[in-house]
Design a protein around this nucleic acid. Structure first.
Length: 305
DNA sequence: ACCCAGGCGGGCG
DNA sequence: CGCCCGCATGGG
């Protein structure tokens, strides 16, 4: 029996690693705080401030959760990190070759996160033609400017909630520009209005990939790559296979001797290779490829065709 | 100074 | 359709 007045709790984890998950450029990394020394994450979700500290090993560990709403916090952490997912099965499916084996080994327990659809949409609109450090900077500026203060029972502010699409409607394009968004300001403005008035992101069917993509790409500033990211990290659709410059380069170098390929071809190839688990595979391709600083080191991992 | 970044929309052939 | 171009900004 859990004490309803309790402010903390624990979740047992297996094949989970908070650090790799946080660091691998997923939405949480753009707006949450993470203390690497203590392996401690702090983020806001739906009016709650959630602290999650991971101890133990990637194989068997524990998350210590603290929050102003512990019940919600535990369920949100479980959902967001897909802690109920059987990773043995995932690894069995995506460990298809030497490169994947290495990426899995180096990032054991890295999860594909499942985030709020609007959060994910905004994060990845910001991400386009941009680098990770600046994505973080811009996202944080927007959260701090337009987010909602979260207060504890004593009325003290304990965090900033992510602004909803209607929250962002009060921002002018010029103000968004001031947050450092650059040419994306008009997309953000348009997306905020569209997702408030025309497209209800919370009513889309996560399992219908084609329909999901059709709806998401109808948002101004959301093309195929960003829509794939939203489908994957905002809806948990594992048919999504976002191809950014890193994934493209890595796939071409590891599996095709550096030959340049069309995005369409890579997507079909990946869906076939990692059937039903392409989304998970993508995160290990992306982050595994990025960790090899000298892209030429990929030569050693090239697969026979 | 230079090149690059979890790409996109618009315009042209 | 496919291809090509410009694009704001700051990190390395």
């Amino acid at each position: 029996m859990t004490d309803p007045t309790s402010k903390d709790g624990t979740i047992a984890t297996s094949l989970f690693d908070l650090r790799h998950t946080f660091e691998s450029a997923q939405p949480l990394a753009f707006f949450a705080d993470y203390d690497i020394e203590n392996n401690n994450l702090v983020y806001a979700s739906d009016g709650s401030v959630i602290t999650a500290r991971h101890t133990g090993t990637p194989q068997k560990g524990m998350l210590k959760i603290t929050s102003n709403n512990i019940g919600y916090a535990k369920s949100d952490v479980t959902k967001r990190f897909r802690l109920n997912e059987g990773m043995e099965k995932v690894y069995e499916k995506i460990n298809t070759d030497e490169f994947m084996e290495r990426s899995i080994k180096e990032h054991l327990g890295m999860r594909v996160t499942l985030n709020d659809p609007w959060e994910t949409t905004l994060c990845f609109i910001i991400s386009q033609f941009n680098n990770i450090k600046r994505i973080r900077k811009i996202t944080r500026a927007i959260v701090n400017t337009y987010g909602n203060e979260i207060k504890d029972d004593d009325g003290k502010t304990i965090g900033m909630g992510f602004p909803s699409s209607s929250d962002l409607m009060r921002a002018t394009e010029k103000e968004l520009y001031g947050c450092g968004t650059g040419f994306r300001a008009k997309y953000i403005k348009s997306a905020a209005e569209y997702c408030t008035n025309s497209l209800d992101l919370y009513k889309l069917n996560p399992n219908d990939y084609d329909k999901l993509m059709e709806n998401l790409t109808s948002i101004d500033g959301v093309g195929e790559k960003v829509a794939d990211c939203i489908a994957l990290m905002g809806y948990g659709n594992m048919d999504a296979f976002p191809i950014d410059v890193w994934v493209k380069r890595t796939i071409e170098n590891v599996y095709f001797k550096g030959k340049e390929l069309k995005m369409r071809y890579i997507k079909e190839w990946a869906k076939e290779r990692w059937k039903g688990y392409a989304g998970y595979a993508q995160q290990y391709v992306f982050w595994g490829g990025r960790q090899i600083e000298d892209i030429k080191a990929l030569d050693k991992l090239r697969q026979p065709l």
